[in-house]
Design a protein around this nucleic acid. Structure first.
Lengths: 181, 181
DNA sequence: AATAAAAAAATGAACATTCATTCATTAATG
DNA sequence: CATTAATGAATGAATGTTCATTTTTTTATT
């Protein structure tokens, strides 16, 4: 799975043939099929594994009873830092969500909000209720938050931008400005 | 090129074999090679064509001498409307930029700002100078603008969200809130 | 206008390559 | 000895590209 992650993150699904994944993992090509029924299964399990790790790391130390703005900035920072720390995870997930694999999954995700998303959705809903956050549907508020975040991380992992510490906090605050009234 | 656009936008680069492109275009497979040296060339020319159309349409009626905020909202709206009107173009470009094709191109794009981008960069630079816009690098300001936009359009073209008129304007204003001081 | 010759374009079967997957065989483990 | 795992060559399907052949269009000649 690690070998697959690296290859796919760097070269995309089609730059990662099973033979190369096997080579990188120092096993024979056929061995992979002892543990994964197919390439699709391998990729889907890899995706699940990454999601699990991310949601775990984000919920860690979450200041559940802090003011709205603080909770928002915390979440934003955590997600941002996670991806900056694990650029390969980001690249892989990006590939995944833009492929047929991810799209059906995404549909479910949007309707029945899963864990990890819940934290943010709660912030939005409470914010709207208390007249702190603009009265938008959750999807729009999420786009105002994650849109810039993903956009930037992408450029960063590709080496186009260098994100420094003070800038990150200012970014988070700018996104808060976008959603607050 | 039209057949390629449709297939690639709907099923990705790898769901669009030359044989199918040819079939959709009602020519034989070999015929494509009279006009395009290879699949790569076809794809790159298609990309250039789309970029040309978009930059043209965006610059049309641009209120070059209006106040900053107005110019920003105009640009934002134009880009948004273009993609909502041409979902296939959006899907294609999204594929393109997330593939090896687009990444090298992107590098150039970020350094030497090309046409179309210039309009927005001018707004940013003037805004920073006049203390209307937050003092961020252009890349960050761009992410605060295009990040949410692309994010939303993606969900819209995939049929997850329905973007209505009044919402669009509010979105644009929210993004302005993100970059303004 | 009519015809012939030449050039250009279209065709699609054949080719070469890539790649996921299988499986008979060998090695490792309990 | 039995069971499980690993191996990697072989398989077959998919796909980009080529090219000899056919069809269409253009040009030249009568």
């Amino acid at each position: 799975m690690e070998a697959a992650l690296e290859l796919i993150a760097e070269k995309g699904f089609h730059g990662a043939p099973m033979a190369e994944i096997a080579e990188k993992a120092k096993v024979a090509a056929g061995t992979i099929y002892t543990y994964f029924e197919s390439k699709d299964v391998l990729i889907n399990e890899l995706h699940q594994e990454l999601e699990k790790r991310i949601t775990f790391e984000i919920q860690e130390n979450f200041p559940a009873f802090a003011p709205l703005r603080e909770r928002f900035l915390y979440l934003f920072g955590k997600v941002l830092q996670y991806f900056l720390k694990h650029p390969l995870h980001f690249r892989f997930l990006e590939q995944y969500y833009n492929s047929p694999y991810g799209i059906s999954l995404r549909r479910e995700r949007i309707l029945g909000k899963s864990e990890g998303q819940t934290l943010l959705m709660d912030i939005f809903e409470q914010g709207v209720e208390e007249n702190i956050v603009k009265k938008f549907p959750n999807g729009i508020l999420a786009s105002l938050t994650f849109g810039p975040l993903f956009f930037l991380v992408r450029d960063h992992t590709l080496g186009f931008i260098n994100l420094e510490e003070p800038l990150l906090e200012q970014m988070a605050e700018a996104c808060w400005d976008a959603i607050k009234i």
